[in-house]
Design a protein around this nucleic acid. Structure first.
Lengths: 127, 127, 127, 127
DNA sequence: GTGGTCTAGACCACC
DNA sequence: GTGGTCTAGACCACG
């Protein structure tokens, strides 16, 4: 997996790394037993400082999602995500269609994000 | 309008305020000429410090969205959002249905957010 | 560069800092790539509060003149000033002579400033 | 005399009024016995609040420059300026020429102001 | 050690 | 009562 850091978002870099690992777990892109990219590689590909990567990996380890094995790397320990992967596919397709239609109607990315947030807030899912 | 601060999100409080104003503009809940809630009111309703609110309002002012009038308040100056409000309604309805189905399929809020992000990234809308 | 704050001028300290950086850019005393003095140094040399310096640096950053690099410092990003440095020298010399003569004629600093302002206003340069 | 308020300068409005009266005194545009414009007139011509004008006039009165006569208006009481008016003329002419040449050399108003400030600071006239 | 965030509280400028 | 300025000091993110 490859990390992307958005330095304009205001969210600390190490939390962006943590979130991206968690999302990869939810999406099924990472599974128990998989190895996270070595710190040095993340440093070169994403431009953050090694301590920042270490902090993210430590945070993931403390939450029980990954496990550091001395001299070998950091490995995924637990799965994440409450969804049945078979049902995820159709949902993703429908969502992609919706996004496509929203774009066609003139909405930009920030519009889409605002709409999603507003629906989730209304629904009570976001506090 | 009323602000909600999520102290667990990692995003600085003043940026949460900025984002909520921007989203209100995009959703059409705020329009040019409207007055933002006074700093002291935000302090009491959302629990943040006055300087934090001032920082958010100042940031909005510098981006040209609002205008502070001495002794009178802070007013919306510019609109935001590329969307036609008439087309926004149906899109919102469809999205709410999708979220409902996702919930029914066992997805929690974080799953939904991860899915949305992944679709937007795939599509190129998020860097 | 070293900052000087005049607490009697009525101009907020952070705006005095901003102006002095802008003037240093115009005079060629600062150029793209140069590092501004660290916040903590400005605090000790000029006696203002750290937040005041941060506010000034942030304002400069938002106007695109400087760039803060986490853990490294604040760096000049853009040049400022429409003047050819070679033509600036002679102009400065002539102005210094004029000021000297004005002093000799009995004008104090406020007289000089008033005269400059009145000429610029007459000329339409100041609104 | 007519006042001009620059709301972008950061200098409080009442101090701009005070400074403009002081500069008019230095330039000889106002002399002892002259009447300052009535508060209501300043309100309409410069757009500031009446209290702001009153505060400026009170400040001038406390510094001994003007005197309020009940029901009649506010009058200049003392002169200001260390300069011989006969020597002021030639100095003003030379300065206007210098400004003209500076413009011709490509300097804008902010460049001119920066240069003046830097000469005065060098000379020790500004702290 | 760098910049950045937040708090608490005093005081100011303006309407 | 409105926004704005400044201080003092704690704590965080990053290199």
């Amino acid at each position: 997996m490859e990390f992307r850091i958005d330095r304009t978002s205001g969210l600390p870099a190490y939390l962006q790394l943590v979130r991206q690992v968690r999302e990869a777990l939810r999406m099924g892109w990472l599974s128990p037993g998989d190895r996270l990219p070595p710190v040095r590689e993340v440093v070169t590909t994403s431009g953050v400082n090694a301590n920042t990567v270490l902090k993210a990996y430590r945070e993931l380890e403390m939450s029980g999602l990954v496990e550091a094995r001395q001299g070998s790397g950091t490995y995924v320990k637990a799965a994440l995500g409450s969804a049945d992967p078979e049902v995820m596919g159709p949902l993703r397709t429908r969502l992609a269609e919706w996004v496509h239609d929203a774009r066609a109607a003139g909405l930009d990315t920030e519009d889409v994000e605002a709409l999603v947030r507003s629906v989730l807030v209304d629904e009570g899912g976001i506090g």
